[in-house]
Design a protein around this nucleic acid. Structure first.
Lengths: 335, 335
DNA sequence: TTGAAAGCGCTAACAG
DNA sequence: CTGTTAGCGCTTTCAA
């Protein structure tokens, strides 16, 4: 494992020049740069990140903070962020909050965030005021994906708009009895997303003069099994809705399975719509509002990278696109 | 951001003593240790990983190499590995091969593996001989999860046994016309897993005197959409099987959706079994062979940690448990 | 355009 | 049990 000294010796220049040449800094003659690059390649030299970090204060690494790995949205965002980071020569650290190991409280004092990462990308997390203050004190660029957090840079779909698109589709088909399976008070989850979708569901319903009874809301916790259970209850209730708006595709799958178990035909007896356009949604034939979490992760990465480069970053809230995708789980209500 | 010097000054000892005290090394008086710990806590001191790495050669970080983030198995393994790593004070680096950014070829010369990680945990990857050689040359502990790779330490279920459990269940119910939806030649996938399951499917069938026609095999690539497509073909074929053995639960879901689309009742018209016990399988009512990838990830982490600690690690192949879970998608064939 | 030299913050002998 | 002394491998002024 050769060091910068080997390269310097091999190419007959100083270590300082090697450093400059390899990092593409100016004030290096083309000829010298070439010689140095050749030497580095020859010796298989790769700069030690630890040494660079120690002397420069830059780690070329960003921390990805995720509430858990089990949800499609998160893994997609991670993949998207990781992609552009790697392209820019940055490494991605994983910080998974799902594990009890490191309590959420101590997260922000963790060495990683303090001394191993130049920036942080946090997914769908609703920080407490304390945590936010701590983050700011780190003076580290931070961007949150999926879920607006006041005062923090954010990338994500406009939840109101996405929900409205879904609801309007249902309403446009003639539905009025629309239930909602949503997330709620998940620990580590950004429940503002769930809240926004739920609120907008009510709003659209109110617009057509409908006040949903409590039985039309089920807490699915953004997980399929839980959503299925909730849907089972909603659909077995006395006042069965003609359609269900699920807060995510994963929860919509749960609704679909619940309907199947109850012998309800979709979309004849029940319409179902979700939000996401999960990679399995097409196979399920699910009507949904598409978003692109991978692009969102990439956008977040680009933002923190820009900040690190000292480039000006425009707004605080970056809205990602969303788009209605009509498939087979929605239709006009039966008579 | 205080340094070791601040702590030393604050507690009236040398930096060497601070280092020893905080790392729990012997030869520090209890009293001194306490003073130092108090000082560190007071100052919010956390050792700089870069500096420690530079002087000790240890990074306290391990690289997690995954073919992609979109598959349940991988994310579970990552979560399991990350959990024990974090508990032991190690950080996890993510190296996602799904992204074109860094071609697979150059992966192993990447700085991460060379100069940022003390060990590598690779998921379901079938290394080429070249890659294996390179890895060994790094002199870094390596463990592969899910898919035996000759000459490399491995954690995973016994694919033959798991497949046999699934097939014997079907055969025990009276099925003889059993199709298989499996993975095949996925780039970056460990196709030895797919091959083992496919081979064993044939073996069990041969045992009961059945030679499956080519139309009874469909390539599902370990992905739901692809598996559904393959299943559609298999089930529409002239010689429709009475049961399908899917190489993973995700593929089994695809088979279930295909059956739904074709109007086939499960399990009356078609039995379906998978391997995994995916977190959604219970909701689908899927009969399957359970494995615990999170535990496997944890086991792999513990192994590399032991190796790093210089502890002896027993065998090369560590078989994880698997267990038949009977639910609602399997039944005796109709007449 | 290039080099010399002084660290970055920690660990690891080696003394004491 | 504790302190001193060298570095680890880079980056970065400051000179030349």
């Amino acid at each position: 494992m050769s060091s910068i000294h080997d390269v310097a010796r091999y190419s007959g220049v100083s270590t300082a020049t090697v450093s400059r040449a390899l990092r593409g800094l100016p004030n290096v003659s083309p000829r010298t740069r070439q010689v140095v690059q050749a030497a580095a390649a020859e010796l298989g030299y790769v700069a030690s990140p630890s040494a660079s970090a120690l002397s420069s204060g830059r780690h070329r690494a960003v921390a990805l903070v995720v509430p858990s790995m089990g949800r499609w949205f998160y893994t997609e965002v991670v993949e998207g962020a990781d992609g552009v980071l790697r392209t820019e020569g940055y490494d991605a650290f994983l910080i998974n909050l799902a594990l009890g190991a490191e309590g959420r409280g101590r997260l922000f004092s963790h060495s990683l965030l303090r001394k191993r990462a130049d920036a942080v990308i946090a997914l769908g997390i609703d920080f407490t005021p304390d945590e936010r203050r701590e983050l700011r004190s780190l003076a580290v660029p931070l961007t949150v994906v999926g879920g607006a957090v006041p005062g923090v840079r954010t990338v994500g779909v406009d939840d109101l708009q996405a929900t409205e698109a879904a609801m309007e589709h249902l309403v446009g088909l003639g539905h009025r009895r629309i239930a909602h399976i949503g997330g709620e008070n998940e620990h580590g989850m950004d429940y503002t997303v769930a809240q926004a979708r739920r609120r907008e569901w009510r709003t659209v319903l109110a617009r057509i003069g409908v006040t949903p009874p409590p039985a039309w809301f089920g807490s699915g916790g953004f997980l399929l099994p839980q959503a299925k259970r909730a849907a089972l209850e909603v659909l077995r209730g006395p006042d069965r809705p003609s359609a269900v708006f699920a807060g995510s595709d994963e929860m919509a799958f749960g609704v679909l399975l619940a309907a199947r178990d109850l012998g309800l035909r979709v979309p004849e007896d029940l319409s179902v719509i979700g939000i996401d356009d999960h990679s399995w949604s097409e196979s399920f034939g699910l009507t949904t509002v598409r978003q692109d979490p991978q692009a969102q992760g990439g956008a977040a990465a680009r933002i923190v990278l820009d900040e690190l480069a000292g480039l000006p970053v425009h707004g605080l809230v970056h809205h990602a696109a969303s788009e209605l995708v009509i498939r087979g789980t929605t239709a006009p209500p039966a008579a």
